[in-house]
């Protein structure tokens, strides 16, 4: 009976996860867009940036999402844009989470001087208006790809994650199992990664989800104000172009709506998932 217990715990987690409507809905939307981003680009023969046909056509069987003022295929732009959005989310969100976790764990566990210094660094990055810095950096780099953009976004987004994780570490570090590990002669670094970090898995996952959504939004903002990648395509860039060429005024809704709706849906889904996961991980929030 004893050996069955971990399975039981996991299945209890799964039970709540599957029963949670917020999580199911959020995950459903996310998976839908993810599949779209993976498969979508293969379903079209047009390059997102070449002129594929007549300009300003509404959706048709030839051009599923219509064409732009310059005759580019909107579907192709959308599918490729979606792909780069996920890349930004993964890389930008990933870097933001990673830096935040390392700094948060270190500051929280070591305390004292290390904490003071890291805390100061965190506060500095936290109060710098992120967007302005991104704008300045973007303005200096003539050629920008999606990768560079993601890295920049990630490097400015970590402070709040670091703060949250520092607080968590602080409370875990005073737990007696950490003392016990110290009395076993474990090194601090090992204690942080083998004793403290595993206890924050659910929390780290939530941090990643939020960072992921934040990175997507940040990228869209940058793209929209014209500081996005100079090569490639993204959803923000699509919106930028649509607005720039007066899609709204010309009634070309097929150009403007898909990228905006997709960003809203993905970020919305992530946040709903976040709430849902919170309920799953935190037994107190579970609806019985």
């Amino acid at each position: 009976m004893a050996q069955e217990r971990p399975k039981e715990v996991r299945s209890e987690f799964l039970y709540f996860a599957l029963r949670n409507r917020k999580l199911r809905v959020g995950l459903g939307i996310l998976v839908f867009f993810l599949l779209f981003a993976i498969i979508g680009p293969f379903l079209t023969e047009y390059d997102p940036n070449t002129y594929a046909g007549p300009s300003a056509q509404p959706p048709s069987s030839e051009f599923w999402f219509g064409t732009t003022t310059f005759g580019q295929d909107v579907y192709s732009q959308f599918a490729h844009g979606l792909r780069s959005t996920f890349i930004v989310g993964l890389i930008g969100g990933g870097i933001g989470t990673l830096v935040g976790v390392v700094i948060g764990l270190l500051a929280g566990y070591r305390g004292g001087m290390v904490d003071e210094i890291l805390n100061m660094l965190t506060n500095i990055v936290l109060i710098i208006p992120t967007l302005s810095v991104l704008i300045i950096i973007a303005a200096y780099l003539a050629v920008r790809g999606i990768l560079t953009e993601s890295v920049f976004i990630g490097l400015t987004a970590w402070p709040w994650a670091a703060r949250a994780i520092r607080a968590q570490t602080f409370s875990l570090r005073t737990r007696e199992f950490v003392d016990l590990a110290r009395m076993s002669g474990r090194s601090s670094l090992r204690i942080v990664f083998t004793e403290i970090a595993p206890n924050m898995m659910s929390y780290l996952f939530l941090v990643f989800i939020l960072q992921f959504g934040g990175a997507i939004l940040n990228a869209a903002t940058l793209d929209f104000i014209g500081l996005g990648p100079t090569r490639g395509m993204s959803l923000g860039l699509m919106m930028n172009n649509a607005v720039l060429w007066a899609a709204l005024q010309l009634g070309m809704w097929w150009w403007l709506i898909p990228p905006g709706a997709a960003i809203a849906a993905i970020v919305g889904a992530l946040y709903v998932m976040n709430v849902g996961l919170d309920e799953v991980f935190n037994p107190k929030l579970r609806e019985m």
Partner: peptide, 16 residues
């Protein structure tokens, strides 16, 4: 020299 503390549950990492 070793120690044992008050809260037996807190002395164990709950996930292991």
């Amino acid at each position: 020299v070793q120690g044992v503390f008050q809260d037996p549950f807190s002395s164990y990492n709950p996930i292991f």
